[in-house]
Nucleic acid binder design. Structure first.
Length: 484
RNA sequence: GCGAAAGUAGCUCAGUCGGUAGAGCGUCAGCCUUCCAAGCUGAAGGUCGCGGGUUCGAACCUCGUCUUUCGCUCCA
């Protein structure tokens, strides 16, 4: 079995990811996060939110609704507006609408059929049976087949474009006017709140707004586990800057975001930039941060210089003036935007892919043993600390529970007294718990416990009264954040 | 969308010729006490993906259907 398959079944077996609606045979490309998955996911969010919002005095966060005014998606170009596909003729330097061209071509073929009919009429005179002729004439049938094929492709091509956004109805009466979309990206929620935040937060350029939230895309092919889902979560930050400085900021964020990834120590060689040569209509620079998943290098995060496309478009469609008065320059302008956008679910898969490790261990009796361990960075682990009584008597469970109850407010802890101690250690390895505390006979005499480390499997004896300080130091992300 | 394969216990799988559904692991309860998943006893858990057909009788044969996975195509 290849590594990717193993990760998928490990995810299910240990409560990280379940297929959606499983007891009803599942729902394709939708997944649920289980008891350990939700903890890991929340910890990733926390790391991102701290790094991208709270430790930057010029970045604030918002949480905008998934439902938005339908015109927003016209302004952003997701629906309607430039769904009319444009096509350039490089020879004539003229721009055409693809749908018009197709229709014209269809009409041309239609005329050919008419010509055939007229010719036949002349030839057969009164005996001419038009319906029969249409059914039997080889040339007409050929033309008709062409038309049908083109029509089918044409309709399909436009349906697909439309299907990308999920539609729903606002209000209890289902009329067309009430049609709204589930957002295909969170960014627009930031753009339409730009003025609110800038004014109420007294924000000065350059500044950023970040947001974590769900987005929905009706992908035609959605596969590869949680890598491409129909419902997914994005962590985005839109950074508003003075026009002309956007490339400088683009470069800055590109480096900063890569640093955020590499500081997790999954291996520098697993990351790379992929600069876009072809740019989207709204961008003047774009790059992806790619990670080497078990199925190859894939995009985890995008960094785009979006120019003033979005804000200008919203100004146009809403009729509200969106500009920033620059005191230095003594003039108003629409800010430019540099976006960092990372897929939370992809980041989750990245962590699992990087952390999943199978080890062979030589036992004391010389036999080989296998262990599966998730080497998740400590602060991202779902459970931080497991607490075991070595045996289930002599007052050890009571002592262990007391320690559990003291520490559970500060760290996500788990108590386990079932099965042999070795089995319990391995269970924690499988979900990536960095530390296990064991209460043994010695504990009852000297107020000490053993702490066992996940990655090295080594143990140390420490005093119970020092537990909190030791754990706090090992689990803190302050030193990481300071290095960003 | 097209093509292929697969669906039996929580997981991995067996199931002979069509004759009352099995194993290992896991789970739970109890015993034992030993710091790296392997001790002992017991228990729970399955309309064999779903529906029709053939048959005295279908997990097994047959048809349909659904779901999942893989490849191609499309999209980013």
């Amino acid at each position: 079995m290849d590594k990717f398959k193993k990760i998928i079944s490990h995810s299910k077996e240990y409560g990280f990811i379940f297929p959606s609606s499983e007891i009803y045979d599942g729902l394709s490309a939708v997944y649920d996060y289980g008891q350990n998955g939700v903890e890991l996911k929340n910890n990733i969010k926390y790391y991102w939110w701290k790094a991208m919002t709270q430790i930057n005095e010029n970045i604030v966060g918002i949480d905008s609704a998934i439902f938005m005014h339908p015109t927003i998606w016209k302004a952003s170009g997701h629906v309607g507006a430039f769904n009319d596909p444009l096509i350039d003729n490089k020879d004539s330097k003229k721009r055409y609408r693809a749908d018009v061209l197709i229709e014209e071509y269809l009409e041309k073929i239609g005329k050919k059929i008419d010509k055939e009919i007229n010719k036949a009429k002349k030839r057969y005179g009164d005996n001419f049976d038009k319906a029969e002729f249409l059914k039997t004439n080889k040339r007409i049938l050929g033309h008709q087949r062409k038309i049908d094929e083109l029509n089918e492709r044409f309709v399909k091509a436009f349906e697909i474009g439309d299907l990308k956004e999920f539609e729903t109805k606002l209000g209890s009466v289902s009329e067309d006017a009430n049609k709204i979309y589930l957002r295909p990206e969170t960014a627009q929620g930031i753009f339409v709140n730009y003025l609110n935040v800038q004014k109420t937060g007294r924000m000065k350029l350059p500044f950023g707004i970040s947001q974590i939230g769900k987005a929905f895309r009706n992908e035609i092919v959605a596969r590869q586990f949680i890598f491409r889902m129909r419902e997914f979560e994005q962590m985005e930050m839109q950074f508003f800057v003075k026009p002309g400085t956007e490339i400088e900021w683009f470069k800055k964020w590109k480096e900063k975001r890569m640093k955020w990834h590499k500081i997790l120590s999954f291996g520098e060689e697993k990351y790379r930039f992929h600069d876009h040569e072809k740019l989207a209509h709204y961008a003047n620079a774009a790059t992806d941060i790619e990670f080497e998943f078990p199925f190859g290098f894939r995009e985890v995060e995008g960094i785009h210089s979006r120019t003033d496309f979005d804000l200008s478009s919203h100004q146009k469609f809403s009729g509200k003036k969106i500009s920033y008065f620059d005191n230095e320059l003594q003039k108003s302008y629409i800010p430019y935007v540099v976006e960092t956008s990372i897929g939370l679910d992809r980041m989750f898969l990245l962590v699992l892919s990087a952390a999943y490790t199978e080890e062979e261990i030589k036992k004391e009796n010389g036999k080989l043993d296998k262990r599966v361990v998730l080497k998740i960075p400590f602060f991202l682990s779902p459970i931080k600390l497991a607490i075991f009584p070595l045996i289930k008597k002599d007052g050890m469970p009571e002592k262990a529970k007391k320690i559990f109850n003291d520490l559970k407010f500060d760290f996500n802890c788990q108590y386990d007294e079932k099965d042999s101690i070795g089995k319990r250690y391995r269970r924690q390895d499988a979900i990536g718990t960095p530390f296990c505390i064991t209460i043994d006979h010695e504990t009852l005499k000297s107020e000490t416990v053993t702490i066992r480390y996940r990655d090295s499997m080594k143990q140390e004896r420490i005093e119970i009264k020092n537990l909190f300080d030791i754990l706090y130091k090992k689990l803190s992300i302050n030193s990481l954040l300071k290095n960003l």
